[in-house]
Write a protein that binds this DNA or RNA. Structure first.
Lengths: 263, 263
DNA sequence: CATATATTACGTAGTTTTTACGCAATAAAG
DNA sequence: CTTTATTGCGTAAAAACTACGTAATATATG
């Protein structure tokens, strides 16, 4: 079966496999060049960008669906994923999608099909939002028939997105910030070994406020989250910073029991 | 149309009005006798208790659905409601509900109807969880054809519930506790005027830990959340405590901007 | 009417935590 | 060897928090 045949089957008979009216979208966050980034996609035939997402299979746990969709997008399995909100309030998510709306979305003429009034993709779309925190360097994105383009965007330069996706990005970021104070989240956004300035700037970028360079690491040490390594990173014409890793045992414990980080 | 006719119409043709496979449940929390309570219901023909919930109309914003369901249960409109999680991972929410499952739930013989294989209530049920914080004294519950009994339960004495509802109660409470540190929540659980010991015990009950009687009010004062009134409550053979109310302006501001309460 | 009992109201000393910031160590370039 | 930019570590001052003492009530009791 070609990719086009698969697309046609999905549009016409996807309801045999997937739930109608409920989808799942992922806010995939990474960190690079002292900037928090979000991975957005441009769907075929669309000018505007949006969050990667997809439908949920009939007997698929929703966390499994989130992993599947995040893996389809990033190529990485077993990502750190957390549900942050379910969206069903904005006009886009309340009013029914009409045949005309859907035709604009998927351009059936190009596929040689017709959208009937009872198509499963019509009606309202409620969507469950998950955020993923990923090591930027590991991600390799791929396009497919539905997805024309992928791009990482600086979190504070996200353009006007499809539907209510700007609201979703805002809510995802709010949730990440709240979680940051109560869970050790950094490990998912950083490579396994990192320097103190690196994690320091990560937290500054995420919280969008400045943290004292000398006091910030003390708080992480106090929680026992970091192991100092006997290696340094070479950073050119300056003193070489030591490398650190997360203390796995304490990190797991903190994830389970929660922390209170006052910064 | 009698109540029974309405029930039959709902079971057979509810999909014309309501979304299939997606529902909404409310964890309604109150406070009385120095105990955090949750309002549970026992559905007709069931031994076990569960959270009040219901389906979502086709063009109904989900927050409106939450308000409707919470109001149907408590008789109070405009409750403080917050979404806390969407449940679609447990076996109950992954595997399809069969004709037999549904017959056990609604006992169609008593209604003189038959459940067909394509009934809209079959299949999986994903549910969106909202918690409500209510002034216990204002609630007046009513039963109907589907609901046999209502009861307030102490939050630490909740029995084994239907499906995954115990998980939902746990998650609701976790979320309330987290929110308690970042939002002024007390106003929704207390009558308009209350004493310091009253709000003190409320927080102790919610967090299930003891807070110093003399230090706790200082933190609320520091946030500017309370107004001292020139009235006292009569509590019998002891010194009469002053009454307080929430400072509306600061309360609203705190709700919007968030607070950091370290207790 | 003095005393006992239980509770609220309020303050404050001592301790801990946090903040702000100084300065030495380092790495390379000129 | 000096300059520049950065990391690493420490510490004094300020702020916050904790623990707890004691006075003020309100009523019942003998």
């Amino acid at each position: 079966m070609t990719e086009i045949d698969a697309a046609i089957a999905f549009i016409l008979n996807g309801h045999q496999q997937f739930m109608a009216h409920l989808s799942l979208d992922c806010a995939i966050l990474g960190y690079h060049d002292q900037q928090v980034k979000i991975l957005l996609i441009r769907y075929n035939g669309h000018q505007q960008w949006g969050l990667p997402g997809g439908p949920i299979r009939h007997e698929e746990p929703i966390s499994v669906a989130a992993n599947r969709i995040a893996e389809e997008t990033t190529g990485i399995s077993g990502l750190f994923l957390q549900q942050f909100h379910t969206f069903g309030d904005s006009p886009y998510r309340v009013h029914h999608r009409t045949v005309q709306d859907l035709e604009r979305l998927i351009q059936p003429d190009a596929l040689g099909i017709k959208i009937k009034k009872d198509n499963w993709l019509l009606g309202r779309q409620i969507t469950i939002g998950y955020y993923a925190l990923v090591d930027y360097q590991q991600v390799s994105v791929r396009t497919n028939l539905f997805v024309e383009e992928y791009r990482w965007w600086d979190i504070d330069q996200v353009p006007e997105l499809l539907f209510d996706h700007n609201d979703m990005v805002t809510k995802a970021l709010q949730t990440v910030r709240l979680h940051l104070y109560h869970q050790p989240i950094g490990a998912n956004l950083l490579p396994p070994k990192f320097t103190l300035p690196e994690i320091h700037f990560l937290y500054e970028s995420l919280l969008a406020k400045s943290l004292d360079r000398r006091n910030f690491p003390k708080k992480l040490f106090a929680l026992g989250l970091l192991n100092k390594l006997d290696e340094r990173r070479f950073i050119g014409p300056h003193r070489s910073p030591y490398l650190y890793e997360f203390n796995k045992a304490n990190y797991e414990k903190a994830l389970e029991e929660g922390i209170v980080l006052v910064i």
